[in-house]
Amino acid sequence: MKALQITEPGQVRLTGVPEITPASGEVLLQIRTVGYCGTDLSTFRGRNPLVTYPRIPGHEVAAVVAALGEGVDGWAIGDEVLVFPYTECGVCSSCLAGRPNCCKHNQTLGVQREGLLTEYAAVPAGKLLRGDGLSSRELALVEPLTVGAHAVARGQVAAGETVAVFGCGAIGLGAVAAAAFAGARVIAIDIDDRKLAIARACGAAECVNSQNTDVANALAELTEGHGPAVVIEAVGLPATFRAAVDLVAFAGRVVYIGYASQPVEYETKWFVMKEIDIRGSRNALKADFERVIAMLQQGRVPTDQIVTQEVSLEEAPDALRQWSDRPGDVTKVHVRLSGGRDAAI
């Protein structure tokens, strides 16, 4: 079988891997579509401390069931599925608290273990999810959108609240769409008008280009001086980490999805004076997957705008290199490995 492999920082190639059969409790999947994730880009650039090389990436997946291992019930050959890509140990503090998304020993497909950017793969049947009526493109978008949706859940976003989202890449767009789906008024913030236009299509009520607009003034004007009740940071820069705390309303909530690559210095008085809640957000829960599937089934996400490029497996190495060279040109790259209901697009 063919697979894409990142062999070392800056090096990616197609390689052959042995054919597999599903073990007991597993399902053999024919992979249809895999989305490149920001972690894949970090792996390619040598900036992902969780990865060892070589590594097959891929955890944003649309697939079809090709064979069933012994003892598998509830699935049939030909079922169209997506994959829940995380593991949970069941015994660490987060698992015991009912939050396995931040399991201390989590291993995400394509990060700490081999991913699914290959023609066929075997996965435990319990990691499959249905997305009835969704196309291959939509199925492969569920996982990245759930990361933003989980941040919205962490922020306890409620209908009628104002939510500001810093960053309108694929993760930030998931937060925009999920907050709008929850009935919030969403203000999207980015430096790229094209991405802001997608954010508006995802449900943002207002958009602010931080490259040519003073964000503090804009948010004050849009919120009658109060600031947003919730700020979600999906960029990962020290400046936006600080801005989230500076600009959130008194008694507000800040949710961080991005990783800042440098230490962040804060004016800590706002932590106390505003009595703000600061929360991290990692991966997603199955409930977040269900919420995003419902959003997609209702047509609430402009998938044709989010996916900026679709390539074949043979073209995938070059697509990753080009994304690394020009990251601003890309919202989401999909690699098509086999036919699906939207294979002709």
Rank of each mutant, 00 (worst) to 15 (best):
V254M: 11
L285G: 07
A249N: 05
V231D: 05
P228H: 10
A260V: 02
V272A: 11
V230N: 10
R253A: 01
A229F: 08
I232G: 00
Y259F: 13
G236F: 00
A260G: 12
E224Q: 14
L219K: 01
K274L: 03
F271A: 08
E265D: 15
A243M: 11
I278T: 06
R279A: 08
G280R: 13
V272M: 12
Y266F: 15
G236Y: 02
S281L: 05
E265I: 06
Y256M: 09
G280L: 14
D277L: 10
V231Y: 02
Q262W: 11
I278F: 01
A284P: 01
G225F: 06
A249V: 02
A249E: 05
G227S: 10
E224S: 14
P228T: 11
R253W: 00
A243S: 15
L237M: 11
V231S: 03
L222N: 04
Q262C: 09
A287K: 13
G236H: 04
K269H: 10
E221L: 03
F271K: 05
M273L: 15
E275M: 12
E275V: 10
I278D: 01
A239I: 07
I257N: 06
L285S: 05
V231F: 06
T223H: 11
V248R: 01
K286H: 14
G236T: 07
E265A: 14
L219A: 04
M273N: 15
S261T: 10
G227N: 10
L222H: 11
A260W: 01
A229V: 05
Q262L: 13
E267V: 03
A249W: 02
P228W: 09
L219N: 02
F241T: 01
I278M: 06
R242P: 10
T223K: 04
D246F: 00
A244V: 02
V248I: 13
W270G: 02
A239T: 12
E275I: 08
N283R: 04
A260R: 02
D277A: 13
V255F: 09
A229H: 15
T240R: 00
V264P: 02
A284L: 07
L247K: 10
G236P: 05
L219G: 01
R279K: 12
K274I: 00
E221C: 01
P263N: 13
A229S: 14
K269E: 05
A260S: 15
A249Q: 09
A251V: 02
K274F: 00
V272P: 04
I278V: 12
E265H: 12
A287S: 15
